[in-house]
Amino acid sequence: MINSDDLRFFRIIANHASLAATARALNVTPPTVTQRLQMIERKLKLKLVERHARQITLTDEGMLLAERARLILAEMDDLHEVLNSQQHEISGCLKILAPLGFGQEYVAPLVTEFQGRHQNLSVELELSDNPDWSSGHAWDIMIYIGELRNSSLKLSLLAENRRFLCASPAYISKYGQPQTPADLRQHTCIALRENAEDVTMWRFNSAGSEKQAAVRINPKLASNDGRVIKQWALKGSGIIQRSEWDVAAHLKKGELVRLLSDYELPSADIVALLGTDLRARSARTSKFLELLKLRLAQQPWHK
């Protein structure tokens, strides 16, 4: 019967293109890898790998074993973390996914603070302007901003976050201010392409009423990087729709001006997405979530 060491070994084989590459990853000789693989195949009485000149392919049985090994080993790791958490020990590896700009500004400092408190903990923080939010199994915590569509993940609110329409004083001086959402069709608008949202459809609610309006903009400029579109707006290139956390300081300094303040844009609350497995209940996850809630609920972007 194979054991967990066999499963971990075979997972490494499955993640490499050849047995030689596996040997380099393990810092052993290729014959050692071959012998260990043959031993596992004898235990199972199955052929797991097809060997070619310079590469390998998994058989159907090998593919099944690799996938089940991933699940089994993840469950074992989760169990280990939960058992540690029963002793209030924060250890293991905390894996976090966050948007690039927000992650750099507000998540990264909290990561170093948290790891500094817990010397037995390591942290992997991935920042991306185009994250794969569907890969919840790969992360302990995913930080998300914006409209969340169908998700099987557990959601925890970190901070309320409004969206504002704004432009620079230079743009307003040259082109004037829109008075209604429909006026945006006569202005230069800048689009941020993120989260698979319909970024050219700008929706508004009239403050204090149920009246709604939607305007399809024809952006002259667009980018998937929030920092880029903000810089364009600061230089007077057009009107942007941006999260409060990102433009609050610029509004306070007068570098940007809020437009159509009698209308509200859909909010983009900042939330943490958690898996439903044991890792979501581990001490490392729950304690870091507490820190996120404590600091972000204070909306530090207004300071």
Rank of each mutant, 00 (worst) to 15 (best):
L158F: 14
A222T: 10
D5R: 10
I90M: 12
E244T: 06
Q38A: 12
G176L: 13
E124K: 05
A17V: 02
D262T: 11
T112M: 08
T112E: 10
P178T: 13
N161C: 02
K287Y: 06
D269Q: 08
E290V: 15
R42L: 12
N205W: 10
D277T: 12
K154D: 14
Q177M: 07
L121I: 05
A207E: 04
N27P: 00
L44K: 06
Y144K: 14
P300C: 02
V199C: 09
K293D: 03
T112C: 14
E81I: 09
M142S: 12
L153N: 15
S261L: 14
N120E: 13
Y263N: 04
K43T: 01
L19N: 03
V123G: 08
Q298W: 00
H118Y: 04
E126A: 12
R227S: 11
N27H: 10
L292N: 04
D129T: 05
R193C: 04
R284C: 14
A108Q: 00
L234S: 05
E81G: 07
F114G: 05
N195G: 03
W245R: 12
R8H: 09
I90Y: 09
E255H: 15
W133D: 10
Q212H: 10
L71P: 07
K303R: 11
M1L: 07
G116Q: 14
D183H: 03
I229A: 05
A249T: 03
R51S: 03
A213G: 00
S261Q: 14
L37R: 02
P99G: 00
P300Q: 01
D129E: 02
I56S: 10
E255M: 15
G208F: 01
L294P: 01
E50P: 09
F164L: 05
R70G: 13
A196Y: 06
E41D: 13
G176Q: 03
I13V: 00
T32K: 06
L100Q: 12
L155T: 06
D183C: 01
L256Y: 06
A138D: 13
E89V: 15
I143E: 04
E67Q: 00
L259E: 04
L259T: 00
Q115T: 14
H187Y: 06
W245E: 03
K95L: 08
K230W: 06
A53C: 05
V257K: 02
M201H: 01
T200M: 07
N27I: 12
A222W: 15
P109N: 06
R68F: 03
L278Q: 14
Y144C: 04
R227M: 09
F10R: 09
C189W: 13
G275I: 05
D6I: 12
W202F: 02
L221F: 08
R149L: 01
L265F: 02
T112L: 15
V123C: 15
K154S: 11
T59A: 03
Y175W: 07
S135G: 11
M1I: 00
L221N: 05
G101L: 04
V82W: 01
E194R: 15
K211C: 06
A297V: 01
A182D: 12
N3F: 07
V228E: 11
S4F: 10
L260I: 04
Q212M: 02
L71F: 14
I190G: 14
R242C: 05
L259R: 08
A283D: 15
Q55Y: 11
A214R: 00
N224H: 11
Q115P: 08
G176Y: 08
S282V: 13
